[in-house]
Amino acid sequence: MDNDAQRTSPSAPADPVPANMRAMVLTGHGGIDKLVFRDDLPTPAPTDGEVLVRVGACGMNNTDINTRTGWYDEVVESSVSEELGMRGRTDGAASSWNRSTVAFPRIQGAAVVGHIVGVGRGVEAARIGERVIVDPSVRDTSLPLHAQLVQYLGSERDGGYADYVAVPAVNAHWVESPFSDAELATFPCSYDTAEEMLQRTRLAEGETLVITGAAGGVGTALVQLATLRGARIVAVASAAKEERLRSLGVHEFVARESDDVQREIERLIGERGAHVAADVVGGPMFDSLLKVLRRGGRYATAGAIAGPVTRIDLRDLIYKDLEMHGITNPTAATFARLVELIETGRLRPLLEETYPLRDLPRGQAQLLKRRHIGKLVVVT
């Protein structure tokens, strides 16, 4: 539901905003020791067109680890292994997703849920008290649609691993839901990315979709969103996660430990091939996914935790007339559609575990083990 829809504005006054706040601060590129807990940081003040959000919960995402470790730098060709995630890179400054240098100190955290407790100039004071879920993509709408992302919460500007965060008012979506803050914080970053992947590839009812990394945050979001579209889902994940993924609606399952994952997928989908491949793993799987797509098939990628540099046989792309989509910039319309799905109860939060703000490093260490299904969330 849009923020400008007819609703009754909250009437309860907000609690006084303290001068200082707690936050987990990223002090530089490197290992998990670069995350430093502070309880004396100045509380941000919302500027023109912004709101101040009292953070209730903030979901953890791979982008936090990618930024901290310097994995986005183009010189990195390795996977996001547990070892890299714990120690990071130590060979100089690295780049963010848009190749600009991330400024330190930085408060990370993209998936914010909370309440508005203050407004900047140009924002109606009636918004104070709203419960909001925050779109992490700050856009310049004068740019082409898929090039509008200019800042990302927790990367180019401070995010939600703190008591308070200031965000553009347009990014703070009023949400009415029985879900807890921690449950709602499972949706941003993962679900808007997944929805954008399926929107761009035009996944339709009855089509076959292959999902890699199906047990992760984006992967489980893809499963739910593809189920709503009535697609046939083939999931690739570790064998230990098959039962839980099938309970979400997966029709066919391929263990990533299989000797020949491509052959297993082909056995399940038949000679005609899949209509769509949604890839959040990259690495060696990339070439196989192009081969299991049918002619006119569509491929979308939003992650490369198994490695960013991979092989491609251009004959697959050319002679099968394939489409390929890279997803970094979910549109504002995609996020608004996600909020509507949440409010109408059509999505199920997959909350694996919560951590207090001070224990964020322990949560990141657990995220790197890749043993969970769904999301890990920090609560304040």
Rank of each mutant, 00 (worst) to 15 (best):
N329W: 06
S81D: 08
G159Q: 03
S177A: 12
D313M: 02
N98P: 00
Q148G: 07
T101S: 15
A336L: 14
D40I: 02
T354A: 04
T186A: 11
P308H: 04
E50R: 06
T67W: 01
V377Q: 07
V254H: 09
L209W: 02
G282T: 05
R131W: 13
A365G: 08
R267D: 13
R371W: 00
N66S: 13
A365V: 10
R127Q: 04
T310P: 07
L317P: 03
E74A: 14
D140M: 06
L84R: 15
N62G: 14
G283R: 12
T8P: 00
E340H: 08
L289K: 01
P188W: 01
E353T: 12
A237Y: 05
S258H: 06
S177L: 08
T141M: 10
S238T: 12
R38C: 11
R294S: 09
V80E: 08
D192H: 15
V134H: 06
H115D: 14
G307W: 09
G307N: 13
F187L: 11
I327Y: 01
P178W: 12
L268S: 10
N20G: 00
G85Q: 10
P44Q: 12
E83D: 01
V377L: 08
T331Y: 09
G303L: 11
N61P: 06
V150Q: 08
G109L: 04
R202L: 02
H115P: 00
A278D: 06
P13M: 09
S238Y: 05
N66C: 10
E323G: 05
I327K: 07
